[in-house]
Design a protein around this nucleic acid. Structure first.
Lengths: 259, 259
DNA sequence: AAGTGGTCTAGACCACTAT
DNA sequence: TAGTGGTCTAGACCACTTT
């Protein structure tokens, strides 16, 4: 029945249990790849009801140390060193190497990387992208939608929007692999010289749909990053809208003091 | 009893209810300052048990649109236009104005801003800050710890660490108000010319302690930003470690394409 | 079929806030 | 004191995974 201890300690039992489990992971008692004991086993071990264990596991999941799958159980996640996403990645000199920024960065940090192309083709520009491109909402643009994997798990979705008049004469931009240096190199090949990239970031919790696309537990934080690529003529020729699992990325920006 | 509908719709009842409440807020049926109906009232209205409403309200809180206080209820939050934290804030020309970056930015977006100084004085450098400053851990440095408010609620904590040999001859750096242009202006007054600022950002969920310091619901996302201020001599003369409520900030960075 | 997590119930007691 | 959210229970049924 509803005994409800409460009076003794101010910290709730489910938090205590969650902390204990998290500590076991951090201390290495539970190693990456190990299964966390099942909820019914935890009910026995701690002598509490299922609901309490359930709440505790919600907390444990929020720590990001564990991944839970429905009929299976909870498994301790690998803790890959987070990827360093630097503003240097758009420097012209680093594009010459041939590899796209993502693959280069990932392999440098010793992880396997994969890109899966979800869609390349015409699309009516969403409102935000249209505004940034300087066209009216609903105008047809080229969309390039990708899903990025790291060590086999999806970590980032990205959709690039490019004005149709810019892309219509550049067939490489319709290919899955646009060639060495990525789409920015192709755009510069065709006379669009870049002046700067402007990135805006906002962190928030993933929606249900986003969480499932990135294989995150609900309530996981994500970073929403939108990049505008501006040419020396002052035109935005690409808007890239990306959503990233927050625990997989550290962002680095260098800001010159001059001016 | 445990009837457990389940079979009919795949989307759980508590999610449906949460979405309905969130929609009412977004549509303006519930306006900022309004109280959300009490949980027991929602139990009646939706004909479900308390536990289901409870879970729904957890979802609603996760949206960031609502603030819940214990014996009181849930109130619809003001949705101030998020503050645009631009990389321009460190340009020398914008420092001359006299105001510190934070106050200027906030007032520009029509919000009341306040800074509360928590501590200014000597401190043993934490490991991360020491490494970035190029001193050994535990070395004495000057720490300046502040709490920033926006419209009366805390949104950001920031701690600056500066090497003792740099600050010992600059008395203004020990004052609550270091004068026009902030500490960067004072450092330049004393011959430390800045070359660049390097910021690293990571988003994650707030710990229990952090949540209470920033008056956030547990499970709210925060952004951890660390800035290094580098002089033309290649020395890091300040490390600023800040923690921000994620929903209060949009970050903007401009990246030159040259190089 | 057995075991796992996911949803839901109906009711208890506690702690905080108002009056 | 009345009303609110916060914790907890004991048990039900469902959906997914594995054997």
């Amino acid at each position: 029945m509803g005994t409800a201890v409460g009076g003794e300690r101010s910290v709730p039992r489910y938090v205590q249990i969650a902390d204990e489990i998290v500590q076991q992971i951090r201390a290495g008692v539970l190693k990456p790849g190990d299964m966390v004991p099942s909820e019914s086993e935890l009910v026995e071990r701690y002598g509490v009801s299922g609901g309490t264990i359930r709440k505790a596991m919600v907390e444990v999941r929020a720590s990001g140390l564990v991944e839970t799958r429905h009929g299976k159980g909870s498994i301790v996640k690998d803790r890959p060193p987070v990827r360093h996403r630097s503003s240097d990645r758009f420097r012209r000199s680093l594009r010459r190497g041939g590899k796209a920024a993502y693959l280069a960065e990932s392999e440098q940090s010793g992880a396997t990387a994969k890109v899966s192309v979800l869609y390349i083709g015409p699309m009516e520009a969403p409102e935000d992208a249209a505004r940034r491109l300087g066209v009216s909402a609903g105008t047809q643009v080229l969309a390039r939608r990708r899903l990025y994997f790291r060590n086999g798990t999806p970590v980032e979705t990205a959709t690039s929007y490019l004005p149709w008049d810019v892309v219509k004469d550049i067939p490489e931009l319709f290919a899955e692999n646009p060639g060495g240096g990525g789409i920015y190199a192709r755009l510069e090949d065709h006379g669009h010289e870049f002046a700067e990239f402007v990135e805006t970031l906002q962190a928030r919790l993933a929606s249900k749909a986003e969480a499932s696309e990135l294989a995150l537990s609900p309530g996981s934080p994500v970073v929403h990053l939108v990049r505008e690529a501006r040419t020396t003529e002052g035109r935005v020729v690409e808007v890239c809208d990306t959503l990233m699992a927050a625990d997989q990325f550290v962002f680095e920006y260098r800001i010159p003091a001059a001016g």
